[in-house]
Amino acid sequence: MKTKLFLALLAGVLLLGACKGSNYEAIRDEKAVSKTDAALANADSTSLETTSTKLVKTADMRFKVKSVQQTGDAIAALTARSNGMVMHHQMQANIEKSEDIRISNDSVKRVSAFSTNADMTVRIPSDKLEDYMTEVAHMGMYVTMRKMDIEDRTLDYLSEKLKLKNRQELVAQQKQGKVIIKNPVNVMLLKDDMVDQQIGNMRTDAEVKYSTVTLSFYQSNTIVQETIANDDPSAYQLPFFKRLAIALSNGWALFIEFMLGMANIWVFIVLAVALWMLYRYYRRKHPAWFVSGIKS
């Protein structure tokens, strides 16, 4: 009986010690987590303070010029001097109205009214954007539209940066065996997200460094006169007497063809004549047959 009581007291003491040990480990883990969270919070605040402002600038301008081609060349040269790059350049001319004036049988003077315009997209260092826009505006006769937009992407940039850091830590723990991701597809998706975030931040850095400028310019309608060959086939006719000689020749050729055709069917012609003569003969010798046939 005493032995059973002693074993019961010993089991109680061991259970109490195990509970204290587990409580101690739990408290120690909570302190570690608290310290980790505090460190992350300090790191996040430090990242927020050290992250530079991410301002993305874009600009648009539409203006009228004297010569679209010369202005396009001047803008390209200015862009090169500003350490920029022309990303898109398109010039086109549309015929607004055209009229043909006949000056001879085979020549026509064509008078056309053209409208010419061009579109350009350039990338300029952001610190030179204002000066660049001012110089481009001076190239035109007048500006019909000019605007500039500034987008602050600082918080978006910081958000992607912190998300990338969290994913990198998760991947590191997965490699060390602290975290187990059972589905390999989830690992690949996680790594793809990390790549997308890195590329997104790199794209933001590039847009912050270089501003995108869209330029559209045009000129007054241009009148162009040119002498071209007449493209109407009916205008190209031979002289009258030559056409008459050709017509007589064609008539003789048709007559010859007709005679040849008749020669090819001479047997049928002879047979038809013989039948007609036979009909006339019987009608003259036996008129009663034909009269009775008509009466019946």
Results as ranks from 00 to 15, higher is better:
108 V>R: 00
77 A>K: 14
57 K>H: 02
89 H>D: 15
71 T>K: 01
84 G>F: 00
43 A>M: 10
93 A>T: 13
55 L>W: 04
119 D>Y: 06
119 D>I: 07
111 V>M: 08
93 A>I: 03
63 F>G: 04
101 I>Y: 08
92 Q>R: 13
135 E>R: 06
89 H>K: 10
47 S>E: 11
52 S>G: 15
53 T>P: 15
84 G>A: 00
79 T>L: 00
112 S>M: 02
126 S>I: 08
161 K>P: 12
55 L>F: 10
70 Q>E: 09
82 S>C: 01
169 E>Y: 07
113 A>M: 07
129 L>Y: 00
116 T>C: 11
90 Q>W: 12
73 D>K: 10
62 R>A: 12
79 T>R: 01
159 S>G: 12
123 R>L: 02
123 R>D: 13
67 S>H: 07
106 D>I: 05
97 K>I: 00
57 K>M: 02
159 S>M: 12
128 K>F: 02
102 R>Q: 10
126 S>M: 01
59 A>G: 06
124 I>K: 04
43 A>T: 06
106 D>P: 10
131 D>P: 05
127 D>M: 06
62 R>T: 12
60 D>L: 03
129 L>Q: 01
156 D>L: 09
53 T>C: 11
143 V>A: 06
38 A>N: 15
144 T>I: 06
86 V>Y: 01
56 V>G: 03
137 A>I: 08
78 L>A: 05
132 Y>T: 07
130 E>C: 03
129 L>E: 05
86 V>W: 00
83 N>L: 14
151 E>A: 13
161 K>W: 09
88 H>C: 03
79 T>A: 00
92 Q>T: 12
55 L>D: 01
80 A>F: 03
160 E>I: 13
102 R>P: 14
140 G>C: 00
73 D>F: 06
80 A>S: 11
128 K>E: 08
103 I>V: 08
40 L>V: 04
100 D>V: 03
162 L>T: 13
124 I>E: 01
55 L>A: 07
53 T>M: 12
78 L>Q: 07
157 Y>K: 14
138 H>F: 07
45 S>C: 04
80 A>D: 09
126 S>N: 08
